[in-house]
């Protein structure tokens, strides 16, 4: 009994060794990236901010001292104090708790918008770039139609047309955001498709689908990912703007933009309702921008080698 278990253990051990050996070049690559990342202080700050942001979102229910939607009208508009560091809003809700719980909504927004917009963008861009000609013209003219409008205005139009809810705001922003990735992916796909290794795989007999998504895509994705991290700040801003305008998350949902909007009529005398969620937005956007710049630098082959 014991013998068989040890034999199984050693088999597992060798397969793990093999696994590690097979991926050694990849691991070395990762190590080098980490080294470069450590040498870029701004990227480090960005990472810390985003790390904190994600941790806060993850443990929000534990961190939030009060219920974010429990009202206490007897204590409304109370100024910041030791018990309520960010003060209370016009319904007596704890602003700190609302900001902390709001981070969860922001993470959700970023995550879903990124996935939807990058999926649409990559498919449109790579199909257009790979096939070129008429397909390219049609897809890119459709993209141009989306690009012809200012992003926020178009997102507002979509959100208004879809009825204002958080889910619809996410859909609306995704529908605006994908054009960025589509154009980038197309440019990369055009570069990659004329490479000899793509012709070689075509000569082996791979289908267009396989070439596009298993050969062209991995080579064109990194600028798209960089752009995505750089745009995450903008995504939060857009979501907050929609929330502020009443086209996104609806009260009492503690979305940051919506909180800012809630407090705007009290701005003169009760600044804390708007100031703290506003700061949360600003710091998070800054964090994403620093991180995005850092990732761009780390992946830049001129700095890399």
């Amino acid at each position: 009994m014991k013998k068989t278990s040890s034999a199984a253990g050693s088999a597992k051990d060798t397969s793990l060794k093999k696994f590690l050996y097979e991926r050694k070049p990849m691991l070395d690559d990762v190590k080098h990236s980490v080294y470069l990342w450590k040498k870029t202080p701004l990227a480090l700050i960005g990472t810390v901010i985003i790390g904190l942001f994600l941790l806060i979102a993850l443990f929000a229910p534990l961190l939030a001292p009060y219920d974010p939607i429990a009202t206490d009208l007897s204590r409304k508009l109370e100024a910041p104090s030791a018990a309520h560091p960010f003060g209370l809003d016009q319904f007596g809700r704890d602003v700190l708790s609302r900001v902390i719980m709001g981070s969860r909504i922001e993470v959700q927004i970023i995550f879903i918008i990124s996935i939807i917009s990058i999926t649409i963008g990559l498919i449109v861009g790579i199909v257009a770039g790979y096939f070129g000609g008429v397909v390219d013209e049609i897809l890119m003219r459709i993209t141009d139609i989306f690009l012809a409008f200012p992003r926020l205005v178009l997102a507002m139009a979509f959100a208004a047309a879809l009825r204002p809810t958080l889910a619809n705001a996410i859909v609306a922003i995704s529908l605006v955001e994908w054009t960025v990735y589509a154009r980038l992916a197309r440019a990369e796909a055009i570069k990659v498709r004329s490479q000899p290794y793509i012709e070689a795989i075509k000569a082996v007999g791979a289908s267009d689908f396989k070439i596009m998504f298993f050969h062209v895509l991995p080579m064109s994705i990194s600028p798209v990912i960089v752009q995505l991290t750089m745009r995450m700040g903008t995504i939060i801003l857009t979501a907050a703007s929609l929330g502020f305008l009443g086209l996104g998350a609806q009260p009492p949902l503690p979305e940051w933009g919506a909180i800012v909007s809630d407090g705007r009529s009290y701005l003169m005398n009760n600044w804390w309702i708007t100031a703290f969620p506003g700061m949360a937005i600003a710091i998070t956007v800054l964090g994403f921008n620093l991180l995005g710049d850092g990732i761009r630098d780390i992946l830049d082959p001129r700095i890399r080698r």
Partner: peptide
Amino acid sequence: RLFRRRMQIISQDPYNSLHP
């Protein structure tokens, strides 16, 4: 595509003909 098995090509530039 299926016929391609029977005819292959080896190209000039060994540095770019392999997916990196």
